[in-house]
Design a protein around this nucleic acid. Structure first.
Lengths: 223, 223, 223, 223
DNA sequence: AATGAATGAGGATTCATTCAT
DNA sequence: TATGAATGAATCCTCATTCAT
């Protein structure tokens, strides 16, 4: 880790390596209680060095999210394409499964709007949003292609709703330890949520509900 | 506001008044950038006095959320009962409308798991979760009653999913000002979400998808 | 020092006590290498407490300067009034002597424009400048009264020039230790300046030069 | 700028070029808020390269000052010689005019003792002080020669006092922007100082006051 | 019950300087 | 000689919370 990254390729490699390690650190501690010093330590780098690669703590973890997000999207796209055509339930299952395997992504997503999107340089934000839009638009088209019964524009819509469900369900299913202990009480079983299953079920229902096989109840008339 | 709250009734009244004011303060500023001093100021009280009524900043705003939540649930229940039976779309519309009117609740909900549930006394957490369970269980039964086509347990399930959607969509639709500015760009229109309409549509699809009018695609077999 | 300052008088007293201690700390260390933590320590207070009384490091030391400045001005005024009328040389001697006794003031004055006037709240700056103007205007009138031969407006002018000389000569006479060592070399004797004597001489010359006893060489025609 | 400086002449040339550019950078930004990276950028050099020519930030700007100082002294000497003999007012006018044209010098001079003389290698300090002494001693003799009425030693004394006045008046006349805004207030007009005019007037008074045409009020008896 | 002065832990960030290449 | 990646010390300020009165 000590070696200097002299050429662009080395620099990119180091950037990636920092991201990978940051992801590891995040999986063990809460974002809020995690310091840049810890990340630097884990990387075997000086604190200042981190700032050569990322302008702020937020940008560092946004980049982590970005990386995970892109990978997930690509994996998911490949999977869907391989299985096409898929039913609503199959689609939902594939999404839930792929996300359950990517804990960091599911952890980071709820932080996106709450913390990560603060303190960003305008162009970092723009770059991120553009990446997001590209993925979402491409992905939306793909979804419309592999999931029969969707109408024009429903692909993007479904992905955005998926995003929303992931954020919301993750928060429901993964409370802080103290709360987890409380929720373990028998009397509170009604509030317990198992992430993967619930996401799969909810998404399946959502996708089914959006399908034109029903009278299109899932979309109001948009001019 | 200065008068001493000597008897239990007075104390309760003051507590309520603090909550009402805190809600107002929150509607103007971000939770994170909001200090207890500001709340105290707005209340015409000293900082220390706040701590006579709430053990921490988190407990104060959790109580605010609790109040809003209960009211919302009750209002919604009444509304649904009045209209019963309702279609998936009607249900979704009622939910979306009632939430859009309660900005604070929609703002607070995404904070629940991210911030509010940290730093809570165990019994506060327990009380809150019990309240939640009561509302959810009662509300779930009510939903099953007014929304035809749901199966046993789907009422609770639908409410939890509603919660998840609200949290996720709210974050999508209400980014920090900096990000909002970026999203205003034409090229990023695909990422813009209008809270009420999107919630209504998504929820309608979800509810429809859960209905037994379809082959029950929305729920996996649970033993 | 631990006792709480509950009423305004106590608070003012504590403020004063902080200023006195800060002055002491400053006399032992360089402003730049001195931390708020040190000051707090010396005061027996917590760091945060300092910020209850002063909004920033700069404001704290500006207040120190302000205090010293006011005192000096008042003392000097009294002294001049007692001796009135005074010659240029007597005036200069009185100024130099009174300043030599107030090391902190002479140390702080060169910092005023270089550091202290940065990072100030607008109203702090305004208050300070008003105080300065009051002192300078009042003092200017007094100088014109006790020092014969000055023309209207020369009192203020002389005080401003005094200020300038103090700042400049102090820097010349009190270099950092390293430089002091170098200057101790015999070959550099021409650059050594003894603050009090040099200020007295320079000021005497200046005051004499401004006197109408000469053809008024010291002031260009001002409309 | 990229070409390697292989022989001593090239190195000297590059050194000079860095100084010239550094001066330009300084004229646009405050010393304190100016980084070595900026200077390097402006030079089209890498940060490390700067350190091949100057041991520290302070030494770099001390050298800038040194250069400006020497030039100014030489110009001024030439000017005075050309006009000799000069009156006190003419002397003061020439000094003020020549300095007003050299903004960088006037900006750097107040920094000399406050910042530049910190963190210097002993021999850099010695070299600088020797240069200063040479200029001051030579210049002092010249002043005594062109400005009638000065006594032995008064030339050096006058130059040192000039230095002091410049430092002091510059700080008075060029406050940071925030302060400048405050001083623009009508009520504070008494505190406003116009550098060139005030320096000319003050210096004229000082020089006149030092002249033996008066009973020598400007110099105490020195054995 | 109310006050508000005092606390003090806590952490991101900057930047002059170094040194391996 | 030139580079620029890496270093890491250094510090101000915030603010939730406490507690003496």
């Amino acid at each position: 880790m000590r070696a200097r990254a002299r050429n662009p390729a080395d620099k990119l490699a180091r950037r990636e390596s920092i991201l990978a390690i940051a992801e590891g650190v995040l999986s063990r501690r809460q974002y809020g209680s995690l310091t840049m010093a810890e990340v630097a330590d884990a990387c075997g780098l000086a604190k200042g060095t981190l700032y050569l690669y990322f302008a702020s703590k937020e940008e560092l973890f946004l980049a982590t999210l970005e990386r995970e997000f892109a990978r997930w999207f690509d994996d998911l796209g490949r999977e869907l394409l391989r299985r096409a055509p898929v039913s609503a339930r199959e689609f939902a299952g594939a999404v839930a499964r792929s996300l359950a395997m990517r804990g960091t992504l599911a952890d980071l997503l709820p932080l996106l709007h709450t913390v990560l999107e603060h303190n960003l340089a305008a162009d970092t934000a723009l770059r991120f949003k553009r990446m997001l839009r590209d993925k979402v638009v491409t992905g939306g088209a793909l979804v419309e292609q592999v999931l029969p019964g969707l109408r024009e524009g429903d692909g993007v819509r479904l992905l955005l709703r998926t995003h929303a469900l992931v954020v919301g369900l993750r928060q429901l299913s993964d409370p802080p330890p103290d709360i987890q202990a409380v929720l373990a009480l028998d009397e509170l079983s009604a509030l317990r949520v198992e992430f993967e299953r619930e996401l799969a079920d909810a998404l399946a229902a959502m996708a089914a509900g959006m399908s034109t096989h029903l009278r299109s109840v899932g979309t109001s008339e948009r001019t």
